[in-house]
């Protein structure tokens, strides 16, 4: 019982971080119908950027986020302009999968050249602190990571619902053709949307770097997780991404703490297949 509750707590806290990573992924899909296989690599790149700021200038990874987010936003816009925009509209959906996979490999290669392939971790002064609440361990880093992810998600949702840009994005998600007719400049929304996705990856990356050791290949661990989350929740739905992240994170943590950590990765694949079997569009997705 104790292991189960501890697993639940861990699952919810980690789920918040996954939700932030996945929100960028699902946002890009919603706007462009592009499955971005580079999102995991962008998160890992974000982790390296905040690692470098921490090691070189002693900047706390949480405080580094505004800097890394701006840099990665620009990078995201650049990637969109360089490799996604030139694709012809009719085969964009299929080719974008492969193109973003190539971008992921490119980022992995560049990380390997700049930081070589040894594992890195960000060791802040509070890295090993934890609270004990009613017999359950809660590490400070994990709690702060959850709080920050929730705040970032809140900002993202505010941006989408309270600004002109957000309205254009939501219109494009609902119906690209009508949005265009109403004067939404689709390519600009797409480029900014991709940048925004990369900026969420920067924020999530700082947090990820605090929680886990990472190396150039870490994006392979992230990508299947993120993709399962967005498909489970329904591609294009931010609410769905949050729900999907919680379901997957909690069930993996519970399986890990009660059965065996070895089988935890299998959990989300089984969940994914089960949901696709009864609801192919995902929990919160609209039918295609």
């Amino acid at each position: 019982m104790h292991a189960l509750v501890q697993g639940l707590i861990l699952g919810v806290l980690t789920g918040g971080v996954y939700a932030l990573m996945a929100s960028g992924q699902t946002l890009v899909f919603g706007i462009m119908k592009v499955v971005n296989l580079a999102q995991g690599a962008l998160v890992v790149l974000g982790a390296y950027l905040s690692y470098q700021l921490f090691v070189s200038y002693g900047i706390d990874p949480f405080l580094a986020i505004p800097v890394t987010a701006v840099v990665m936003f620009a990078l995201g816009v650049g990637v969109h302009l360089a490799v996604l925009r030139p694709l012809r509209r009719e085969d964009r959906a299929e080719l974008s999968l492969l193109v973003t996979f190539a971008v992921a490999l490119l980022i992995e290669g560049v990380i390997g050249v700049v930081w070589n392939t040894t594992r890195r971790s960000i060791n802040t002064s509070y890295a090993n602190d934890s609270w004990t609440v009613a017999g359950y361990q809660i590490t400070v880093v994990r709690f702060a990571a959850f709080a920050l992810s929730a705040a970032a998600l809140g900002l993202l949702i505010l941006l989408l619902h309270r600004t002109r840009f957000g309205r254009a994005v939501r219109a494009t998600v609902q119906n690209p053709e009508s949005a265009r007719l109403l004067g939404v400049r689709a390519e600009r929304v797409a480029a900014l949307g991709f940048g925004l996705g990369a900026a969420t990856a920067a924020a999530a990356g700082s947090v990820y770097g605090l929680l886990y050791p990472f190396n150039a290949g870490s994006h392979y661990d992230l990508i299947s997780l993120l993709l399962s989350i967005v498909v489970l929740g329904g591609l294009g739905s931010i609410g769905g991404a949050i729900a999907g992240a919680m379901i997957i994170s909690v069930s993996s943590a519970v399986v890990a703490s009660t059965i065996s950590p070895s089988w935890a990765p299998m959990t989300f694949f089984v969940l994914l297949l089960a949901v696709l079997l009864v609801r192919p569009q995902g929990l919160f997705g609209r039918p295609a």
Binding site: K33, V35, L97, S224, L227, S228, V231, F269, L272, P280
Partner: peptide, 10 residues
């Protein structure tokens, strides 16, 4: 097709 790609890469 895109969900298929996601399931297979997972």
């Amino acid at each position: 097709a895109d969900v298929f790609a996601i399931v297979t890469i997972t």
